[in-house]
Amino acid sequence: MALNFLGPAPRLSYQLMSPIRIQTTQNVTVEYEVASVGERILAAIIDNLILIAWLFAWVLLFSLVGVQDQILSVMVALLVGIPFVFYHLACEVFFNGQSLGKKARHIKVIRLDGTPPRFGDYLLRWLLRLIDTGLFSGLIAVITIVSNGRGQRLGDIAAGTSVISTKPRQGAGALAPTFTEPGYVVIFPQASLLADHDVATIRQLVHTGLERENYLLLNEVANKVKSLTGIQTDLPDEAFLRTILRDHAHLAAQA
C-alpha cells in the first residue's frame, strides 16, 4: 500500500473531554470528543478580539482620512456592524463549521446524525445565538452545554448539532488499535483485505491528518483504502477510516 507518512506526530497534551457516539444514516457508530466549555469560551474570546480589532482598524482609518462624523457613523455601521452581525454564520458556512476562533482551538460544528451540517443548521445556531450568548453574558449557553452532556447550547439542540474537538484523543497515541465490544457488527468485511502494516500506516496518517486538520490527507487516505478494498460508501472520510480500523481490529481478533 503506497501511502506517504508525513513524519511522527508530536505528543499531545490537553484535557480529556466526554465522548459522544453518533449513529450515522448508514448505521455506523462514530465516537467524538465533545469540545469543552473552556475551549468554546476561548474560541469565543478569540472571535470577539478579531471583531474588536476590525472595529478599531476602521475607526482609526476613517479618523486618519478625516471622514465627517455623519459619514463616519454610516460607514462604521456598514463596514463594522454587518460583519459583527453575520460573522459567525458566514464563518461556519464557508469554513466547514468553524469560526476563526474555533479553528484556532481545533473545534468544529457537526451534525449528530453524521451528515455534514447544512445552511439551515448554521442559520438556526446563528439565530439562537442571541439567546445563548447575548443574554446574561453567555450564562445560558454554559448552563445548557454543561447540563445536557452532548456539548449543545440551545442553538445546537434546535439544529441537531454539537461542537466537537478535532484533536486526536488523549492517550491514543497514533490512534491506538481499537478493541471492539462483544457483539460488534462489522460494517466493511473488506477490511480483512488490508495487511497489518497497511492498517498501521492508515492509523498513523489518520492521526496526523486529524491533528493538523489536514482533511485533504484524510480524503486521499480514504480514497486509497477504497481503491484497495473495492468499498463504495458515502460516509465522511474520517468516519469511514475509523470504521475500517475498528472492523479490521475485530476481524483480526476473530481470526
Results as ranks from 00 to 15, higher is better:
49 L>D: 08
38 G>M: 01
14 Y>N: 12
16 L>R: 11
112 L>K: 03
76 V>I: 14
83 P>M: 05
71 I>K: 12
12 L>S: 12
126 W>Q: 07
24 T>D: 02
87 Y>E: 00
33 E>M: 09
67 V>C: 08
74 V>G: 06
87 Y>K: 07
123 L>I: 04
40 R>V: 01
29 T>G: 03
113 D>R: 13
36 S>Q: 07
29 T>N: 11
26 Q>F: 01
64 L>W: 10
47 D>I: 03
28 V>F: 01
25 T>G: 13
31 E>W: 01
94 F>V: 11
67 V>R: 08
102 K>Q: 05
22 I>T: 11
39 E>Q: 14
44 A>N: 08
114 G>Q: 03
75 M>C: 10
11 R>T: 15
104 A>H: 00
44 A>F: 06
12 L>F: 02
97 G>P: 05
92 E>S: 03
18 S>E: 10
13 S>D: 10
106 H>L: 11
75 M>G: 12
117 P>R: 06
113 D>M: 05
124 L>H: 02
63 S>L: 12
20 I>H: 09
82 I>K: 06
90 A>Y: 11
107 I>G: 00
52 I>S: 13
58 W>N: 08
68 Q>G: 14
23 Q>E: 14
88 H>R: 13
86 F>H: 03
38 G>K: 03
77 A>M: 15
44 A>V: 07
12 L>H: 11
70 Q>E: 08
81 G>K: 09
85 V>N: 13
122 Y>H: 14
121 D>C: 06
108 K>L: 00
33 E>H: 12
98 Q>E: 04
93 V>L: 11
89 L>F: 15
60 L>G: 09
97 G>T: 05
60 L>K: 13
77 A>K: 07
103 K>G: 01
67 V>Y: 04
84 F>H: 14
19 P>W: 01
46 I>P: 07
23 Q>H: 15
117 P>H: 05
36 S>H: 07
115 T>W: 05
108 K>T: 04
110 I>C: 08
20 I>F: 05
100 L>Y: 08
61 L>W: 12
115 T>L: 09
71 I>L: 15
122 Y>R: 05
18 S>H: 04
48 N>R: 12
85 V>T: 15
114 G>H: 11
101 G>M: 01
49 L>A: 12
86 F>A: 09
20 I>L: 10
20 I>R: 07
100 L>R: 03
35 A>D: 04
96 N>E: 09
42 L>W: 06
105 R>I: 14
16 L>Q: 11
12 L>E: 11
113 D>A: 04
